[in-house]
C-alpha cells in the first residue's frame, strides 16, 4: 500500500535578480495520504501547490521538513501529469511513452498502446507531439503517467491549460482509468468543481500552509459535474473558502495590499 507523508514541509525561494524579496511557497505543511484514495489539493494561486507536488516527486528540495512517497517502505514509483504535456517534441507519441518505461520489449509497446487506447488515442502512436492538438497531447501525458504502473500518481492542474469542454472530457478519461487502476493520487487544482468530481478527500491550502483537511467527499462514482450531490458539495467547499477571510485566503501581505 502506498503512503505519502508530508511533515512540516517548508519551501522558501531565495531572492533572485528579478524578484528581490524571498518567496515563501510552503510554510509548515503537514498531511498524510494512505491507500488507494484520490486526494484533491485545492488552493488559490501562490499557495505552493505545484511546489508541493514537485517535492513529493523529488524534483525539488524542501527548505526544511520532508515529503516522502513510499510503497511498502521503499520509495514509490511516481507517475506525474504536468500542467503542460511535457512531451519530447522530437520523439513520436509511442516513443515518448516508452521513454519513461523501464522494460523495453514488445510487451511494453503493447502496454503503451493499451494506455493510449484508454485515452482514445490508438491512432496517433507514431505521430509527433506537434501534430496533435493540446488536448490530445495532454491525454498522452495522462497515458504516460499510468504506463509506469505508478504507486503514487501526481496530477498538477492537468486541465487548466485546456478549454472547458476539452477539460471536461479529459476528466472523464481520467476518472475512467482511475476507477480501473485505483492508484493513490494527489491532484492539485484551483477548480473546486474538478476537485469534487474526482476526489475522495479535499485538502484546502492557503499561502503558507494547510487551511483545512477535514473534508471527505463521499459520493458514488462515476460522478458527473451536473449531479445535484456534486453541486451541493461544491457549494460547501466554496462556502468554507469564503468563510476563511481574506487574510487567510491570500496571505496577510497580499490582503493588506
Amino acid at each position: 500500500m502506498a503512503t505519502v507523508l508530508i511533515e512540516n514541509l517548508t519551501k522558501v525561494y531565495p531572492p533572485t535578480s528579478n524578484n528581490p524579496t524571498q518567496v515563501q511557497a510552503l510554510g509548515g505543511v503537514n498531511m498524510s495520504v494512505t491507500g488507494n484514495v484520490f486526494v484533491a489539493i485545492v488552493g488559490p494561486s501562490g499557495s505552493g501547490k505545484t511546489t508541493l507536488l514537485n517535492i513529493v516527486a523529488g524534483v525539488e528540495r524542501p527548505t526544511s521538513g520532508a515529503a516522502r512517497a513510499l510503497q511498502e517502505g521503499v520509495p514509490a514509483q511516481i507517475g506525474y501529469v504536468f500542467q503542460e504535456p511535457r512531451l519530447l517534441p522530437w520523439r513520436t507519441v509511442v516513443d515518448n511513452m516508452l521513454y519513461v518505461q523501464d522494460r523495453k520489449s514488445d510487451r511494453s509497446r503493447r502496454e503503451a498502446e493499451f494506455y493510449l487506447q484508454m485515452v482514445g488515442l490508438s491512432e496517433v502512436a507514431d505521430l509527433y507531439p506537434a501534430q496533435l492538438s493540446a488536448g490530445m497531447q495532454q491525454r498522452v501525458g495522462i497515458a504516460r503517467a499510468f504506463l509506469v504502473n505508478p504507486d503514487v500518481l501526481l496530477l498538477d492542474e492537468p486541465f487548466s491549460h485546456l478549454d472547458a469542454l476539452t477539460g471536461r472530457s479529459l476528466r472523464d478519461y481520467l476518472q475512467r482509468i482511475w476507477l480501473q487502476t485505483r492508484k493513490t493520487a494527489l491532484f492539485v487544482t484551483h477548480d473546486v468543481t474538478e476537485a469534487v468530481e474526482l476526489a475522495d478527500r479535499i485538502v484546502m491550502l492557503r499561502p503558507g500552509g494547510v487551511a483545512y483537511d477535514d473534508m471527505p467527499v463521499d459520493l458514488p462514482r462515476p460522478r458527473r459535474p451536473g449531479d445535484p450531490a456534486v453541486r451541493e458539495m461544491q457549494d460547501e467547499v466554496l462556502r468554507r473558502f469564503d468563510a476563511m477571510g481574506a487574510a487567510v485566503r491570500f496571505g496577510a501581505a497580499e490582503a493588506a495590499r
Partner: peptide, 23 residues
C-alpha cells in the same frame, strides 16, 4: 520542464542522455 519530468519518472541516465540531451 522535460528535465523535471524525466527525474520524476526516474528515467535512467543513459536514456536521458540519448533522448533528452541529444534531441
Amino acid at each position: 520542464g522535460l528535465v523535471q519530468m524525466s527525474r520524476s519518472f526516474g528515467v535512467p541516465l543513459g536514456r536521458r542522455l540519448y533522448h533528452l540531451l541529444l534531441g
